[in-house]
Write a protein that binds this DNA or RNA. Structure first.
Length: 326
DNA sequence: AAATCGCCCAACCGCAGGACA
DNA sequence: ATGTCCTGCGGTTGGGCGATT
């Protein structure tokens, strides 16, 4: 079998597209739909490589493409998403409706990158160029106030027992079941009973966590929720402060700093995998926080006493969860 | 007015990987 | 198991254009 070239080398046009070519391409795609790019040029009467046609359509002619300046919200999202995914432009583009990977890539390289450097932020690592971690206002909170908030939060949790860990778990599993995440860490988080469900088997505060020497102690999800909740997904302004706030990329560090559930709460192996998971799955952690928030909201309006919290189920093991993510 | 420079962005290139025969 | 097709992706290029000299 001899592989035919992707496009004929002879007679193919390159460079800028003319209006006439655009019209031909639009007409063809409207009539036949997307796909079959290899044969499209011949059928559509275009002297272009199929690849070129696909690119022209995807980056310019597609009807759902949003043209014009990037809004501040869009730029903030790009920065956030870049901190999570790096140069995965297509991944970033999927989160920004109407924007193409190419457009985002260009905008990053020509505008945002320079802007970040000007602000003293390394666009690669999202840390300060002087080597210091970026200064997220929320992460610089005084620890004691954080712990006070945590205490208050726990008090509230105990008042809203209507929230079901089982339901929460199902929702998390449904949303993240196909993703590569640290299922052990997730089991730990959920295993603590959900942020708004009291439980007796897990540590419930940083101080208790510190006291514990057991490797089976679990992180306190109330703490986690509070931290993630304080991390903005986007910013409506573009001041220096909010720039700094956008530059959060060390979720795990924050969790460690503010809750103290790090190595004191986990054995070495769990600690390493959680660390890795947090740094690789910041998006997941944020979305988990959103689920937890939704769970909290539901708890106030939905009483489901017929569903038993997971931690109250006799002989419950997290094998089921682990299977989901395994 | 002409030459040069620098920026921007559409388009190209090469590669990877899944689907399929 | 192997090779091709097809598509998607990230990095790079080069032409257009405004600003500057």
């Amino acid at each position: 079998m001899v592989r035919t070239p992707c496009c004929r080398a002879e007679g193919l046009k390159k460079g800028a597209w003319t209006q006439e070519e655009d019209q031909k391409l639009i007409a063809y795609v409207r009539h036949h739909g997307e796909g079959g790019w290899r044969t499209l040029p011949d059928k559509a009467g275009l002297k272009r490589c199929g690849k070129s046609c696909r690119l022209r359509w995807a980056n310019y002619l597609r009807p759902d493409i949003k043209r014009g300046e990037f809004s501040q919200e869009e730029e903030a999202s790009i920065i956030n998403l870049h901190a999570i995914h790096g140069n995965k432009w297509s991944t970033i583009a999927r989160r920004l409706p109407g924007r193409t990977d190419n457009e985002i890539k260009n905008h990053w390289n020509t505008h945002i990158k320079k802007h970040l450097i000007k602000k003293g932020i390394d666009p690669l690592t999202h840390n300060s160029l002087d080597g210091k971690p970026s200064n997220h206002p929320e992460t610089s909170k005084d620890k004691s106030s954080v712990y006070q908030e945590e205490h208050d939060q726990n008090s509230n949790n105990n008042k809203s027992l209507g929230s079901s860990s089982a339901r929460l778990l199902n929702r998390v599993a449904n949303r993240f079941g196909k993703r590569i995440i640290n299922h052990s860490a997730l089991s730990d988080i959920i295993g603590s009973g959900g942020p708004f469900t009291s439980h007796t088997t897990s540590t419930t505060s940083a101080s208790e966590c510190e006291k514990s020497t057991s490797s089976s102690s679990t992180p306190n999800s109330s703490n986690l929720h509070m931290i993630l909740d304080a991390t903005p997904l986007s910013s409506s302004t573009f001041s220096n402060d909010t720039y700094a706030s956008l530059m959060y990329d060390k979720v795990f560090d924050d969790i460690e700093d503010m809750t103290g559930f790090s190595s004191r709460c986990l054995n070495d192996e769990d600690f390493l995998t959680l660390d890795e998971s947090c740094s690789k799955n910041t998006l997941f952690m944020r979305e988990l926080a959103m689920i937890l928030q939704e769970d909290k909201n539901e708890a106030t309006s939905f009483s489901d006493s017929h569903v038993r919290p997971i931690n109250e189920v006799d002989n419950y093991s997290f094998e089921g969860i682990d299977n989901w993510f395994g």
